[in-house]
Design a protein around this nucleic acid. Sequence first.
RNA 1: GGAGGGGUGGGUGAGUGGCUUAAACUAACAGUUUGCUAAACUGUCGUACGGGUUAAACUGUACCGGGGGUUCGAAUCCCCCCCCCUCCGCCA
Length: 427
Amino acid sequence: MLQINVIRENMEKVLAGLKKRNFKDAENLINEVVETDKLRKDTQKKADDLKAKSNTDSKKIGELIKAGKTGEVNDLKSQVAADRQNIKSWEESLVEYERKLEELLYKIPNVPAEKVPAGKGAEDNFTVYEYGSLPSLPTDAQPHWELIKKYDIIDFDLGNKIAGAGFPVYKNKGAKLQRALINFFLDEASKQGYAEVQPPIVVNKASGYGTGQLPDKEGQMYFITEDELYLIPTAEVPITNLYRDVMVNEQDLPIRNVGYTPCFRREAGSWGAHVRGLNRLHQFDKVEIVQIRKAEESYQTLEEMSAYVQSLLEKLELPYRKLLLCGGDMGFNSAMTYDMEVYAGAQQRWLEVSSVSNFETFQANRLKLRYKNRDGKTQLLHTLNGSALALPRIVAAILENNQTKDGIKVPSVLVPYTRFEMIDGNS
RNA sequence: GGAGGGGUGGGUGAGUGGCUUAAACUAACAGUUUGCUAAACUGUCGUACGGGUUAAACUGUACCGGGGGUUCGAAUCCCCCCCCCUCCGCCA
């Protein structure tokens, strides 16, 4: 959520930013925000002034009673009672203005950073960097959804039986590969100085609002009605919310956390022709890195985080490209996002495996995540996060790119974790 | 799930309807003094939204777990909810 005073004071800049996102109706929305804010302030002034008056009068009543001047008390009492009625009605409209203002603010996405190109969708993203050469596979190379059957490592039918479509069962060397990847990613992050956390995989409503999944993505999260809990779509939600309502000590900055969790996404209505096998799931594993930074450091941190994610892909020997997302393709909360896409040789498609974003104060504003600077001023912090990494598409790319007639070659960096070099029929 | 006890500022903790402007202690910060593994003294010391100001000063309101109610007036009384502790039940 954008800060109201930022909108008030930098209206031109906000509008220009939203235009880069191709965000419709920005001008009307912003005007309505400013107008509602003004009404809110006027109403608060009226309510506050009347409250001040009735507070003084109430005190006077106490003094009169003490002095035994009970005769004058009744008039004053009815005066205060009448004022209270008016206060009540001012407060009702105040609550209404506040509610409306919040509702409007929830509709406004983050303002893209200076560097973010304008654009409507994926076709306008800017390729920043490419690594590795595309694998040259034999013409009979198989896509991963065939390979997983051939080597009996991931079973969609079994998952379908016990849960439903999009909930695969990992078996044999497939299960071991999952565990290897998770441990590899966690160990690498630890080496980089990220503090490991293992958060709950359900969160309450307040946490959903804190990081901006609510109200924007209400229908995309699984919801447990009995206990009013959401299954997390990403570890970003619980980990970032650890710092909700926190006034961070300056000496505790920067905050750097890593966590592994399963992630749950309903993906309602987003299943298409090219979404097969591991390309899109309802449940998947991901290791997430989160940083909380001072404003002046956050863009340098974004570069550092994306460079770290790139280093993981390079160690796994996967060809990838790094995209700077255009305004129209960025997530609602983000000010700037890099996507990493690996090339899956048999599908001959790029698959998104990581998204690294700087949210600036957009989340921190909702989270009330702040610190006091040297001048004693309270400042919102910047939040950043990135996948490091999401497993299924990494697995898909490894399977497809590393297939040989003897089986699938495990990237050498993972062998200490898997303790096998080839995925073949043997267990 | 049942019974009982709790939730007050960064921490400890007083406060049963108006003398509370939330005491006191403590931590932190600044200064003074002594002079050196430190102490004493003085001062400052919450958050949010407003008014005001070039900026400050100054100033209004709200906040004692959350929400509602009673009252001229609520940290204090009433109702609902949440969380913590103890015991019981269930349980990996």
